[in-house]
């Protein structure tokens, strides 16, 4: 009995370890396998109760026109949406198209339609991609806020699945 319990608790400890490794690998995957792209970002400066100071970033493609998904079936809150990006002449990536189906080619981000207000807004859905927070120490956060007052550039790593990780944020020089 005691041996069985010891074994079970050992498995529980191992499970916690595996969860942590899994989260690390999942977060690291776009950095290992992804393509680096640069997009325009607009920062806001809030604070997370647990995780410290961060710059909240908005992107042009954080709002997707309802007409862009008009041909697809009815959209639900929390639904996965794929946003395709195309390179503009300056080398930055910008919104190209949106779909509820996974695109077969090109650079695309996997996001989710969020917010209770999504259906109150007349023309847009709000989409989040897990790249909206850039955690930095307090002093750096304040400096970043000053530097990015007129907008900045976010460096993203996009995996072939559409999963995206925020790598860096710099001023728009």
């Amino acid at each position: 009995m005691k041996k069985g319990l010891t074994y079970a608790l050992g498995v529980a400890i191992a499970a916690q370890f595996l969860i942590l490794v899994g989260m690390y690998v999942k977060a690291q995957m776009p950095l290992w396998t992804g393509e680096s792209i640069r997009v325009k970002a607009i920062p806001v400066d809030p604070r997370s109760l647990f995780r410290g100071n961060y710059a909240r970033l908005n992107y042009d493609f954080s709002r997707v026109a309802k007409s862009a998904l008009a041909g697809d079936r009815q959209v639900r809150e929390g639904e996965v949406v794929y946003v395709s990006l195309k390179k503009d002449p300056s080398g930055l990536y910008e919104f190209s198209a949106a779909s509820l189906e996974k695109p077969t080619e090109g650079v695309f981000l996997k996001g989710r339609i969020v917010g209770g207000n999504a259906w109150r807004a007349k023309h847009f859905y709000r989409v989040k991609y897990s790249i909206e927070a850039y955690f930095v120490p307090k002093v750096k956060a304040l400096q970043l806020e000053r530097e990015l007052r007129d907008g900045g550039i976010a460096e993203l790593m996009v995996a072939p699945s559409g999963q995206v990780t925020l790598k860096n944020v710099v001023g728009d020089d």
Binding site: I19, L20, M23, Y24, A27, Q28, S48, F50, R51, G52, Y54, R56, V114, K128, Y129, S130, I131, E132, A133, Y134, F135, T165, L166
Partner: peptide
């Protein structure tokens, strides 16, 4: 878990 979320900027 919180540290992983912070390091990889998993805010949302």
């Amino acid at each position: 878990i919180i540290l992983i979320a912070q390091i990889y900027h998993l805010g949302e």
